[in-house]
Amino acid sequence: MIDLADTATPAAAIMNEPPYDELVLEARNVDFFYGKNQALFGVDLPVRRNAITALIGPSGCGKSTLLRVLNRIYALYPGQRAVGRVVLDGEDVLHEQRRLPWLRKRVSMVMETQTGADPIEEEQVLRVGTDLARLRARVGMVFQKPTPFPMSIYDNIAFGVRIYHRKSKAEMDEIVETALRRAALWDEVKDKLHSPGLGLSGGQQQRLCVARGIAVEPEVLLLDEPASALDPISTAKLEETLVELKKDFTVVIVTHNLQQAARIADYTGFMFLGRMIEFGPTNDLFLQPKSDKTRDYVTGRFG
């Protein structure tokens, strides 16, 4: 683990809440570029274990971009690049860019080293860089639009698990059921596990995607406006699910819905024009914002 107590980043300075929860993921001084356009300017984001961290801000402020940096899904697209550090369990996952952009997609098989064994091995890990596929298994993502795969409900969940583990039929059945229960979808689909995932309603599809994301047991689950295409009832169910999930996972959620952030998030970051304006416990940010910009936004004066 990297000791974060003596790394005085701006976010850590804003964030002077005494009982520090353990940091699982942290973005430090991240700049992001879409080609020549800079979208993020020195953004810091501490993500605490077993908490929900919400990112709010007007459209185009870079909150989704920041989310996409955290599991490096942006690396699918040549021309997008991030500078800075993203530390996951003490391991910098945002290593140097390779010269040939399409090579970035390739998986470096080098990364079989165990993390957290001893300091020397950790140094090794930092130098070697991160296996992208493995990173994304540790930092899962749910997108704005539901994205079930073109297979059955059961296979949608089993698919991700099969990549990593060989499981017996019974074990897999259990994993699928647990994931669906955790995502509060089990009761609605238990009788039609083998019908297509695309046949579900929008809200069910989105909870299927959450179930798929948690079935591979990620450390952090990123959600990019997961409720923006859902009706109020589905949204409420999804929020319940997220609060439940907090026990086992760490959640980072981008949302346009301020009430949603206020309802479920333990920590909230307000972003504006590619900068992290303010970050802190949700109550502080909504009730005693330190920045005028934040106050204007959370009171609905702009955005």
Binding site: N71, K105, M141, F143, G160, G213, V216
Partner: peptide, 10 residues
């Protein structure tokens, strides 16, 4: 992205 996001290889 969802597939890559699960940790799939290309």
């Amino acid at each position: 992205e969802a597939a890559y996001g699960l940790g799939c290889t290309p």
